[in-house]
Design a protein around this nucleic acid. Sequence first.
DNA 1: AAAAATATTGTACTGATGGACAGATTAGAT
DNA 2: ATCTAATCTGTCCATCAGTACAATATTTTT
Lengths: 208, 208
Amino acid sequence: MDHWFITMDGSLKARWQKAFPDAKPSTPELVEKRAKSGDLVWIVTSVASWPQLTQRLVPMGLTVVLLSYAPQDKEALKALDLGARGYAHTLAAANVLRQVALVVTNQGVWVGQELLAKVIGGTFKALSQRTEVSPSADSDHLALLTERERGVALAVSRGATNKEVARQLDITERTVKAHLSAIFKKLSVRDRLQLMLKLSPIREQASH
Amino acid sequence: MDHWFITMDGSLKARWQKAFPDAKPSTPELVEKRAKSGDLVWIVTSVASWPQLTQRLVPMGLTVVLLSYAPQDKEALKALDLGARGYAHTLAAANVLRQVALVVTNQGVWVGQELLAKVIGGTFKALSQRTEVSPSADSDHLALLTERERGVALAVSRGATNKEVARQLDITERTVKAHLSAIFKKLSVRDRLQLMLKLSPIREQASH
DNA sequence: AAAAATATTGTACTGATGGACAGATTAGAT
DNA sequence: ATCTAATCTGTCCATCAGTACAATATTTTT
């Protein structure tokens, strides 16, 4: 079983060589002629034709894994839909790449934990609403908060520190923390970073 | 990295001992005190409090895998939603358990193939109908960074802590800090929060 | 009237964060 | 052969963030 790494110029990143000493660099044109059934093909998504290439390689009995510099959920889902068996970060460490190889060559599927959590989280809520009474309306997160908590949440989502929020709202830093703790609990996030991520779509809508 | 197997009576199945010679049996009460960050905790779902236990263990930096005698999709989704990294059959063979351990300790997620296909297949259609992926307006910022710094910046912009980034890129937390300091200086931001704002695809200023 | 939700502030603690000093190594360019 | 940029790691320390206990006052709901 051979490893093929597909980039535009056929270059072979040192990390890949480290992960798989027998790794072979190649191009979209050449890999179709040289790869044998059962081989593992890694394609960098900066290769514009990766969707078409994936669609041709999978029926040939090749296992395809996509590598992206800026992983995006939609791209990952598209890759899996086209028959790819994995989607990982181009900069993944050597031991991670070996792990991916192990999984996908054993009939497994590899996707990042974040995507899976997102995908499954969304599906879980959808499934739950059919059988259970789920009070969480996932439409607008801010609707779950009180007026004061909303103020704090919005300030934090703009990157403000606790001290800054306190100054803006003319309350003590301790009170800001109290509101934040309530916000974290209500929205089920662990810290202000996750809060920013959860509220970022709202910021986007609010400015249009 | 230690393995902990949680059952009601703290018994240790022979299969588990075979898979991991250094496996330690424990109970829901004891594991919280004895397990260290990075350890892998296997919980049998016949332990009624597994959801609460999982929620407490995950934030502690522990990797949690659920084992069920009668795997069900819904239970698996709940487990993953609570932060578990794997869901397998209690009677899985030793070599399968070792495989699961390898995957989950490398930022991967282990679920049955059927469930994964079901979940991803269903979600893909839902996500596809959304708006097109916006061309990343952050490419200019990322261009200022080195390859490694880009990896760190992207992970942080997804809300990861330094410890998580370190695990993902297989470097020490100290090195993550070094890269972050360089990133902050290059992009003229004071902390990770401002970095997130700068790298978030859509900014409020951009729409004015 | 009683209960619940909201808003506010306090102390003390743990863990995360970022900077201040640093040094070591490796690959590539001049 | 030097030099430079990139990568990785170390200790120490001040600050920040979040929680665990709080308590008190006001408003709203039942």
